[in-house]
Amino acid sequence: MYLQSNMIYTITANTEGWELFVNSLLPMIMGAIQYTIPLTLISFVLGLLLALLTAMMRISKSKLLHAPAVVYVSAIRGTPLLVQLFIIFYGLPTIGLTIDPFPSAIIAFTLNVGAYASEIIRASILSVPKGQWEAAITIGMSRTTALRRIILPQATRVSVPPLSNSFISLVKDTSLASLILVAELFRKAQEIAARTYDFLLLYVEAALIYWVICFILSLVQTVIEKRLDRYVDK
């Protein structure tokens, strides 16, 4: 009780701290709008396309398609994201390939989403009963049409919860881009903290903003799931 009232006292009575909180809100939110959110959205969309391609390659019976997909997924899952970011941004210039911070981050995050989501997509495609393929084929569909019209819509429903997880993780993982100089939300917090030494206040503030973004995304997930569930027996 004492501790709690003491905290409230420090935040409300310490007008200096409160002002800092309010004043740094705008730069952090700008960081989120300019970098965190675009980085998340672009990487996720590109990553999903890559994931779908990878999943199809892994399902394919052709070894030539199967093998590269397996190696790619293994390499990305088996190495830290931060190390991948450093290789792309700090490592590649050594061989004359210099990429700006933002595109470097896009590349690293896309590769990551592609690898993790491909396993989700693969599992969800395989979860659709074989009879659905057969029914589609007997009404004359090619495998591609069957996939697009019959299989993927059913697989989507299965994959929304795990893909939402990936998406929310991605929002938070973008904070790693601060280490390759992308001026996103957390980097803004670091910059302000470096001037004011209010580490606790500013990092908690950054955490709160991430939380709010992720909370809104969970709400969106619920809406999508409800929409996709309309044809499912409950």
Partner: peptide
């Protein structure tokens, strides 16, 4: 040929009407 399955294999994400129209429309 057209085929009728033991376990029906209707497309669960389509209505009865859409199940019937899918082939003629798309294929």
């Amino acid at each position: 040929s057209g085929m009728v399955f033991q376990s029906y294999n209707l497309f669960p994400h389509k209505t009865a009407f859409e199940n019937v129209t899918e082939g003629p429309l798309i294929v």
